[in-house]
């Protein structure tokens, strides 16, 4: 792989608690180049914290440290907050599960995109509006002029996600962190959103960190998969070879999915081995 877009070494995130400090992310290392990397894990595995560390959008109490967290030649964790703010929504973009929490509820969605255009591209009001309509078209919204004046609570989940993506592409990010972007969507809408992400990546090299718990989705959509368990990456493999996973945890997850092509009376349940928490990743 040529120079990675993002390089993370030994990322750790700790929280204070009544019973001492809790380490939620325990030494995570990975690189992202011009590719789609799936980060798989259960709730509590630390996958979202890992994604949020890259954006430096952690809860106040969290304390992240890393040997290296380099993006575009800069150490993210030691950047001043002002510079980081420019980076968020600039070179690094994030898509969350529920777009309603990321959009301003009292501003029409069109105005929000237009404002982003004016800030990032220094466009005039009229140019920004034209650009916004074009962007809405780009994310396959059929009648942009009708959607422009709507408020966030008036749009569906899939539409909201497209608006988030439209807003994101204004700044042409080279790294996109998508945290369960399609989990709340119907399968047909999900397909459309994924296709839009693909189109976006075709225009220029972009790294995509796709955080999800959906193994089937990652298998189809991503190039590479990282499997997280209890704050560590326990296995890493090409998405196409997910079925050949060796780690018992990954195997357990795969077996637990109910599948039409493999009907069973009882689903296999995961027998958790305490050694998974302590042992180092195989590769």
């Amino acid at each position: 792989m040529s120079d990675p877009i993002l390089s993370v070494r030994n990322l750790r995130v700790t929280f204070p608690s009544l019973a001492g400090r809790i380490e939620a992310v325990r030494g995570v290392s990975f690189d992202i180049g011009n590719e789609k990397v799936g980060l798989i894990g259960e709730s509590g595995s630390g996958k979202s914290l890992t994604g949020r560390s890259i954006m430096r959008l952690l809860p106040k109490a969290a304390h992240p440290v890393a040997d290296r967290m380099r993006f575009d030649g800069k150490e993210i964790l030691s950047l001043p907050e002002g510079e980081m703010r420019g980076m968020r929504g600039g070179e690094i973009a994030m898509i969350l599960q529920d777009p309603k929490f990321s959009l301003n509820p009292i501003m029409s969605v069109g105005d929000q995109i237009a404002e982003t255009c004016r800030i990032h591209l220094k466009l005039s009001k009229r140019e920004a509006r034209a650009r916004t309509l074009h962007l809405l078209e780009q994310v396959h919204i059929n009648d942009p002029a009708r959607v422009y004046p709507l408020f966030p609570h008036e749009v569906s989940g899939g539409m909201g996600q497209r608006i988030m993506i439209a807003m994101m592409i204004v700044a042409r990010p080279s790294l996109i962190i998508a945290d369960e972007p399609t989990s709340a969507l119907d399968v047909s809408v999900r397909g459309q959103i994924l296709r839009i992400l693909d189109e976006l990546r075709a225009e220029r090299p972009t790294g995509l960190l796709f955080i999800t718990h959906d193994l089937n989705l990652v298998r189809r959509f991503c190039d590479r998969v990282l499997i997280m368990y209890s704050g560590r990456i326990v296995e890493e493999l090409p998405a196409s070879r997910l079925d050949e996973a060796e780690h018992p945890y990954t195997r357990g997850l795969l077996d637990a999915i109910p599948r039409l092509d493999r009907p069973r009376d009882r689903l296999a349940t995961l027998q958790r081995d305490p050694r998974w928490i302590t042992e180092e990743a195989g590769r």
Binding site: E42, S43, H213, L215, G252, L253, A256, I257, P258, R266, L267, A268, T269, L270
Partner: peptide, 14 residues
Amino acid sequence: LDVSVQAEILNLLQ
């Protein structure tokens, strides 16, 4: 729910 937990709940329901 997560898939591993989903499997446990579906088994329980069965």
